[in-house]
Design a binder for these strands. Structure first.
Lengths: 361, 361
DNA sequence: AGCGTTTCTGCAATCGTTTGCAGTCTATCG
DNA sequence: CGATAGACTGCAAACGATTGCAGAAACGCT
């Protein structure tokens, strides 16, 4: 069907081996035949068959990225970054969706190595450590965002302890003392680390930890709603909520909307990880930015390094951290009195403060 | 490195050909040896090498989905649907991001056919018709969401004329007479068709078309902002805006927020295509749903059909339409008086109407 | 027993590349 | 002018599977 190396060789009246060497630029060809072959190949529209090449070389020029889903904005930008970087290097990205489900992850992983991918960036569920470890002998692997504790794979992580600390401190500085935390499952790296950052900020500020204010749960909007209700139903509800479980945000917003709770007047809200619409939401939602773009770039860097190094790429470093930063918008407010005056005035004060804060951070 | 067919054959003391036939189930093997080989293969952990198989059979078990980006919620659900369907059939999805850029699209396409993908679902830019047409000789292709006019490829489209008609009529029924339209580029199928649906609804209602109310532009938030400003700066601004350009929505919201325009009191807003947060936004945003999930499913159906039919899968049908439907939430409001009373009362009327409408549709 | 079927198995070619090895050619030097 | 190194080139064997063809085994039948 398509033009093969043999066709090119015949047209140029040389052997396939010469043609191969000339076109791949593997040294030993005379300048003249080399150029001639390149020209002929172009004329004939020759495109090397990656399958055949892959069979011989064991490489596929395919790099896989395995994420949980695509609704998460962080994964979106990661996918786009990874795709762009890889394409520039002549690789195709194989984007896979694992749904944070160990079984699916496991299936996908085997399919991927079957297909002889050249590298893998994975956001692990954390339940397939042994498999990942085994596969890492055959193909360079870099973990992203989460660590799989059962492996010693190179891992690129957000600095979640710092991010959670930053966010919590921000709320404390605004005068909040009762700060609700909605955080991810405690069997994930990020879940544990964000909790620890929160706790540390509290401790530093001399605020006693109150476990009724802390809720950990699955990465789903429903979780956010459930946790938010529990928090708001407390005898002494928090004056601020830190949603450190990205997927839970929508659920929290639904509950506050249902109950006509005005943000930030009645409740300050701080979220972890950005979403495109946070900026346009009214009030615009303040966040702790986990640096998705940087994370993806670093992961690609590390992967490429390992791929080059062919096995002996152990630099000793096992874990890379990408700093988080606070982006202030309009959903957090100074907490002064035990209960703010509930009146028409609050609205104007909101717009004032929002105008002041909406400057780029 | 890994177990090959040869290893299995040796272990079973048969030839590779017998092993191959037994494991692929290509008939001609005795029941006994067949079962024996299957058992041995499992014991040895044999996994067929898709690369080698692909070289011989010309198939890769890879199906590509080429979309513009991943920020668009419709593309997200399409990707997830396609992935799920294909995986169930033993295919791997190759998800590619083309950025609605003809050059990138073209590059990606050639890489994909190089990799001998078994099928392709593509949201075409519309600028690479000839190439697509040429490739369709080698690999089954189905176009999604947009048509490439330079081809006669099988295409799965949303029923945009109907959707736009539905949305516009809804606004008209609410009493709106001046309805702004922000729509996509007119060199895309959806752009043209949505405009036509809008025009038809107007005509049916006996409302004269006013071109100052119609703005077409690129698929970017910035476009939305620009167009919204133009509309609102009109001597007689519209009482409703129909944002039929999905990507423009955020821009429109920014402008209304900037100008303290209260939706739906001061302005009714209707958007095309859903986003996960539309439902949680205050007010929840009414939409015309393009049926992304159905579109994706249909596209997969058609592709599989073509892949089975091996070339002669021309059923005559070239175009499939998936119906749109209106989902009413809280961003559209009855328009009665020329100008509604602008006072504190408007707020309470908002919460009333929103409460009434927020029932599931 | 001999023969023709039928059923199963193995040989070997093939897919399109890459690559070790050996052979050919040119040029350079003694 | 002949030897020899050096630079190219071609042959052929891989890579791991599939598959047409022919041979072998088993079986039933007369």
């Amino acid at each position: 069907m398509s033009v093969t190396l043999k066709d090119v060789a015949q047209a140029a009246r040389v052997s396939v081996s010469t043609a191969s060497r000339a076109l791949t630029g593997t040294g030993l060809t005379s300048e003249r035949t080399q150029q001639r072959l390149v020209r002929i190949a172009r004329e004939l529209g020759y495109r090397p068959n990656p399958i055949a090449r892959g069979l011989k070389t064991g490489q596929s020029r395919l790099v896989a990225l395995l994420v949980h889903n695509l609704t998460n904005a962080s994964f979106q930008v990661m996918a786009e970054v990874v795709q762009a970087r890889l394409k520039a290097l002549g690789y195709q990205m194989l984007l896979c969706i694992g749904g944070d489900d160990p079984q699916q992850e496991s299936d996908t992983l085997t399919t991927l190595v079957d297909h002889r991918i050249d590298g893998l960036i994975v956001v692990p569920t954390g339940k397939n450590g042994p498999q990942l470890k085994a596969l890492s002998k055959d193909v360079p692997i870099v973990c992203l965002v989460r660590r799989d504790d059962a492996t010693d794979l190179e891992t690129v992580l957000a600095d979640d302890p710092q991010g959670a600390y930053l966010g919590t401190r921000h709320l404390i500085e605004l005068g909040h003392k009762r700060i609700g935390l909605i955080v991810g499952r405690q069997d994930t790296t990020s879940g544990r680390e964000r909790l620890s950052g929160y706790v540390r900020a509290l401790r530093e500020a001399g605020i006693a930890r109150d476990d009724t204010l802390i809720h950990a749960g699955h990465f789903e909007p429903e979780t956010g709603a459930t946790c938010a209700r529990k928090l708001l139903d407390l005898p002494r509800p928090p004056s601020a909520i830190f949603v450190a479980n990205h997927e839970a945000t929508l659920g929290v917003l639904r509950v506050t909307a249902e109950r006509n709770i005005v943000i930030p007047d009645d409740l300050s809200l701080l979220c972890y990880e950005d979403m495109p619409w946070f900026e346009w939401h009214r009030p615009a939602i303040s966040i702790v930015d986990n640096g998705a773009r940087d994370l993806a770039n670093l992961a690609v860097d590390r992967l490429l390094h390992r791929m080059d190094a062919k096995g002996n790429g152990n630099d000793g470093v096992r874990e890379y951290r990408v700093g988080a930063k606070l982006i202030q918008r309009d959903s957090c407010r100074q907490f002064d009195a035990p209960a703010p005056a509930r009146s028409g005035k609050s609205k104007s004060s909101l717009s004032k403060s929002s105008a002041a804060k909406s400057a780029k951070v």
